[in-house]
Nucleic acid binder design. Sequence first.
DNA 1: CAACTGTATTAATTTAAATAGTACAGTTAT
DNA 2: ATAACTGTACTATTTAAATTAATACAGTTG
Lengths: 127, 127
Amino acid sequence: MFTLDYQSRLPIYEQLYKSIIKMASLGVMEPNEKLPSVRALGQQLGVNPNTVQKAYQMLERDQIIYSIPGKGSFISPDLSSVDVKKSEALEKVALAVKEAIDHGVDKHELMQYIEQLLSIESAGEET
Amino acid sequence: MFTLDYQSRLPIYEQLYKSIIKMASLGVMEPNEKLPSVRALGQQLGVNPNTVQKAYQMLERDQIIYSIPGKGSFISPDLSSVDVKKSEALEKVALAVKEAIDHGVDKHELMQYIEQLLSIESAGEET
DNA sequence: CAACTGTATTAATTTAAATAGTACAGTTAT
DNA sequence: ATAACTGTACTATTTAAATTAATACAGTTG
């Protein structure tokens, strides 16, 4: 069900994260379907359960899955947010923001800049 | 002339990089003015000359200074690139934000995402 | 050639990221 | 109630990357 590349420089939890996003977006896994437990998947893949948990927490942060302590983790009922492109877009934003900070842009200055960007967008224009 | 915070989590060469950019942009140092040699500044600051060199190389990459082997390092005659770097970084942020919106990311969701990235707090903080 | 200058390469150190070990708390069924 | 599940939190260990340093090289100047 899940395959990993242990030689990859990409962290295990990143591989899992992407893999599950793809499965969810392709419909291989359906809404509310139960995912393997962190322990079961960890054992199956030969990694620590916490490594699986890290992926699961990222997925929950992105509302791709939801987890209930004691019950399990499940594919989110609303997968509109489960879009690979969307995730990648957010990733790009994160990178660009980091780069801006590295180049000495003030945090609050940057926030105001982005707020302005977004309000201009909402003013209503399309590509 | 140069002051460092050795307790800071910010690397020495980053502090130097920013410090010299500020001096150049504020006009404290003028175009074509000679900078201290990597050895002289290294000794003055109590760090390895290569740490100074790293800052100098970043500054040269950004066309803020220019270095001539055997002669020295000098403030660039055209300092317009000082702000250009920052602008380019912001430009990247703008592009990434636009792309995210185009992919259906909610504006408020995006703002919160970025706020979290920047881990902005109510009160200002210093490193 | 002596005393400068920047540069390149490598090694040592320090710091952060990634993963693992262990213990805790909620759920479910018996 | 308890046994066997579940996710979670916290800490430690391991691994990788970033930072700094040591050393050697090559060009410039007087």
